[in-house]
Design a protein around this nucleic acid. Structure first.
Lengths: 127, 127, 127, 127
DNA sequence: GTGGTCTAGACCACG
DNA sequence: GTGGTCTAGACCACC
């Protein structure tokens, strides 16, 4: 995994976890990698993973079973969806609309571009 | 003017200037507010406006006539359009597509929401 | 039994044992549950019960008869009372007073709340 | 300032700030010490103060004005009162009642002890 | 000057 | 083994 430098690494890790949850790859009650494991895998300092997990724990997306590790909460999916949508609506969408207006980009262009994006990134293998 | 806290203030000021240029409110060759004027108006540190103007100057959108002030360059509009579009396409759009896919937001929802946004922000009163 | 997450589980188990002793439910010389029994009942790691029993043994509240099990000591009640009171007076009470002062909670409120607490938790049914 | 070792230092710092706010020593809109200042004063690592300030910021008790520092929010007092009371009621009070019941401590003893405590710690000089 | 982040490394309690 | 905390030190963007 490679990190963009315009966003804190620990937030990118949290976002990555959120994405896995939304995609159903980390179902409820499943144990997630330990701090040390994930740090080794991502080649970051364990403290950075700790910060990411603190964020998710604070959002009640994961929960710590002491001495054992972190687990996905029962309603993690709904929670991730909720705060992601919240963030999207208030932070990203107005900026996005402002940009496409000023740059004179039409919704039809977007639709086309989006189809291509989905095909590239989320293509189902059996298509 | 109020600033979002997820982006540097000087960049928001530069974006504000870019918007005025794109909307034709700051035409070519026009003098723009002095650093001190704008700092006072926006209630920010003058250094912050300096950084914004440095950014615009570096993009050749404004030019400094020493002792007089900053002026919009002849092809400012094209330049703003160019680098804004560049930034939009490479930075924002992929992230945006990823989000609407994960959050399951349809293009039809977006279209509707966009119409409302335009009505609220860019509606000319005498149309 | 459910555990609070602001205190070590083994200490909560030890406190639970102390409570039973103070309430006279575990009289002197009585055998207490084996480590494995209690671990199974509380659904915790046996090591956790071991630590709780070590704590109580160190306080001379229980004693190990090898091959047989743990037994309540003759003066267990007095010992529990002593160290609990010690802990209460030096650790909890000052913090408690500081809190009710800052939060502006009166002793009358407390008295009322306490009566309710006793009624809920320690009311004997046949009174 | 000296720290107890049964609670994280950063939480003790946050609690110290909360106390100052409740006592009116840090009124709304006031700037609080910078991370580095407070770290030097308390002789802890700056990161530890950062964690304390993160906690308070998350509770909306302080707010960061970028490049300037942290400031007490307008309703900081109410917020500190709210979450402190919440914590007190759910975490400390039941434990406290359980203890005084088991230790057979009367409310009259407490009242007396409390008066003494107040006299020692919060005595007004002009009495 | 301000806070924000990250690394490296350590120690600890807990299960 | 697990996470939680702290230190030391560094670099950075920003105001």
């Amino acid at each position: 995994m490679e990190f963009r430098d315009n966003e804190a690494i620990y937030l990118q890790i949290a976002a990555y976890a959120g994405e896995r949850i939304l995609l159903g790859k980390w179902p409820a009650d499943q144990k997630i990698p330990s701090v040390r494991e994930l740090a080794a895998e991502l080649q970051v300092n364990p403290n950075t993973v700790v910060r990411a997990y603190e964020f998710l724990q604070h959002k009640e997306v994961i929960i710590n079973k002491r001495g054992i590790g972190f687990f996905i909460t029962a309603d993690a999916r709904e929670r991730v969806m909720a705060y992601s949508r919240e963030r999207f609506m208030t932070n990203e969408l107005p900026e996005f609309f402002r940009n496409i207006y000023l740059l004179n980009i039409s919704m039809d262009e977007l639709r086309e571009s989006y189809e291509q994006f989905k095909a590239e990134h989320y293509q189902q293998p059996g298509a």
